[in-house]
Amino acid sequence: MKLTFQKKFKSMLYVSSGALAIFSGLCAYKGDEKFYKNVIMPLLHLLDPEQAHKCAIFASQYRIVPKNSYKDPESLHIQVFDKSFANPIGIAAGFDKDGKAIMGLKDIGFGFVEIGSVTPLAQVGNDKPRVFRLSNDKAIINRYGFNSEGYARVAQRVNEAKPNIGSLILGINLGKNKTTDDPIADYVQGIKMFANISDYLVINISSPNTPNLRSLQNKENLKKLLKALVSVRNNLCGKSNIPLLLKLAPDLTYQERQDIAEVLKLPECKVDGLIVCNTTIERPSLKSHNKNETGGLSGEPLKDISTKMILEMSKLTDGIPIIGVGGVSSGKDAYEKIKAGASLIQIYSSMVYEGPLIVTKIKKELMELLEKDGFHSISEAVGINVK
């Protein structure tokens, strides 16, 4: 039995090393979209999803990814949270959990990078397997459970990267430890740790993979949480204007969304923006055999759900700045979210299926759609469908 395990381990090591070598070598060349989609990504998908994720982080960490040569046009520049974004396309939290891939993600052409979710203390997350591809649905189910190297280690990496990131906007997505007795204290610690080394902070209370986390979205719990966090932010030394964003779940009822909007209108609970939305525990019509795995569903099935929620929250909050995320794989998808009220867009699952060149593809298509409709900038199109 020991010999069998050793053979399996060696086989896995050979496959992983081989796939990584191929991926790394091919990435060194100027990227071709179809080649990535039809050759590189299927090769990477020979690995189990978590191993493939690690390979992608490795490639980004050591900058063996296709360097973006596309110059962002002025029409894609946008000012949000008093920050200047070279383009509105960012990588969602969940990809670079520990701040290892910042420079590679910059090379790919993202306008902003969101790290995390990061927890105060290092924790391993949930048992494996904990991430599943739903290839027939262009979707992913994950139940990672906030696996994190912890605030201190991630802060160290961010400090090391900051001098080299130029105009790249950097956000930190904050989570709480699974066994914490005081979730507010966890987020307070994160604000104090990252306020002076990031461009915005996200309070993530919407992951479905940490017990009782989503209960913090309940009206009274949210009021107590935000009152404490906004107060801490406002009294920080050095950077009391760091934007605070709240990330919401798509599974909230309309009444719960109204309640959240009411809380956000209280001066003592006023945050600077929302991220709409996190993964869903709902299971719309799916085709893949992994469709019944527990965890949060992301990707194409979330596209319309997310866009509708962006529109609702934009109306309910009188136009609070929103980062739209969920099922974006084209310029058209991004544009629909922008017209629904999103100022910025994040992707993740679509990059898993199509590779890093999708970033430039989305930007080019988005620029063409803006021009077609007579807009000179992204900001002119934000929220035009909100009535």
Results as ranks from 00 to 15, higher is better:
Lys2Ala: 09
Leu3Glu: 13
Phe5Lys: 12
Gln6Ala: 01
Lys8Asp: 13
Ala19Ile: 15
Ser24Asn: 09
Ala28Glu: 10
Lys30Ile: 05
Lys30Asp: 10
Met41Thr: 14
Leu43Asp: 08
His45Met: 13
Asp48Ala: 03
His53Trp: 02
Ala59Asn: 01
Ala59Trp: 07
Ser60Leu: 14
Ile64Trp: 11
Pro66Phe: 05
Tyr70Val: 03
Asp72Tyr: 10
Pro73Asn: 11
Ser75Ala: 13
Gln79Asp: 15
Phe85Asp: 09
Ala86Asn: 13
Gly90Arg: 05
Ile91Asn: 08
Ile91Glu: 09
Ala92Thr: 10
Leu105Trp: 04
Phe110Thr: 11
Ala122Met: 12
Ala122Ser: 14
Gln123Glu: 08
Val124Ala: 15
Pro129Phe: 06
Arg130Cys: 08
Ile140Gly: 06
Asn142Gly: 11
Glu149Trp: 00
Tyr151Trp: 06
Asn159Pro: 03
Ala161Glu: 06
Lys162Arg: 14
Lys162His: 02
Ile169Ser: 03
Asn173Lys: 07
Leu174Tyr: 00
Asn177Ile: 04
Thr179Ile: 11
Thr180Ala: 05
Thr180Leu: 08
Asp181Val: 00
Asp181Pro: 01
Asp182Asn: 13
Pro183Asp: 12
Ala185Leu: 11
Asp186Cys: 02
Gln189Phe: 06
Ile191Val: 00
Ile197Asn: 01
Ser198Arg: 04
Ser198Met: 10
Asp199Trp: 00
Asp199Ala: 08
Val202Glu: 04
Ser206Gln: 07
Ser215Pro: 04
Asn218Pro: 00
Asn221Arg: 00
Lys223Glu: 15
Lys223Met: 07
Lys224Ser: 13
Lys227Cys: 07
Ser231Glu: 15
Val232Ser: 11
Val232Thr: 14
Asn234Tyr: 03
Cys237Leu: 08
Leu248Ile: 14
Leu252Phe: 11
Leu252Ile: 09
Thr253Gln: 10
Tyr254Met: 07
Arg257Met: 15
Gln258Ser: 11
Asp259Thr: 01
Ile260His: 07
Lys265Thr: 09
Leu266Pro: 02
Pro267Ser: 03
Val271Ser: 11
Asp272Thr: 07
Gly273Leu: 12
Cys277His: 12
Thr279Ile: 10
Ile281Leu: 14
Glu282Ala: 07
Arg283Gln: 01
Leu286Ala: 04
Lys287His: 12
Asn290Trp: 05
Thr294Leu: 15
Gly296Val: 07
Gly299Cys: 09
Gly299Ile: 03
Asp304Thr: 12
Thr307Glu: 12
Met309Asn: 03
Met309His: 03
Leu311Trp: 14
Ser314Thr: 12
Ile320His: 07
Ile322Gly: 11
Gly324Ser: 13
Gly326Phe: 08
Gly327Trp: 00
Ser330Asp: 03
Glu336Leu: 01
Gly341Ile: 05
Ser343Ala: 08
Gln346Trp: 00
Gln346Cys: 07
Tyr348Ser: 05
Met351Leu: 13
Val352Asn: 05
Leu357Ile: 11
Lys361His: 10
Lys363Gly: 01
Lys364Cys: 10
Glu365Gln: 11
Glu365Gly: 12
Leu369Val: 02
Leu369Ile: 10
Glu371Trp: 03
His376Gly: 15
His376Asp: 15
Ser377Thr: 12
Ser377Phe: 01
Ile384Leu: 06
Asn385Ala: 08
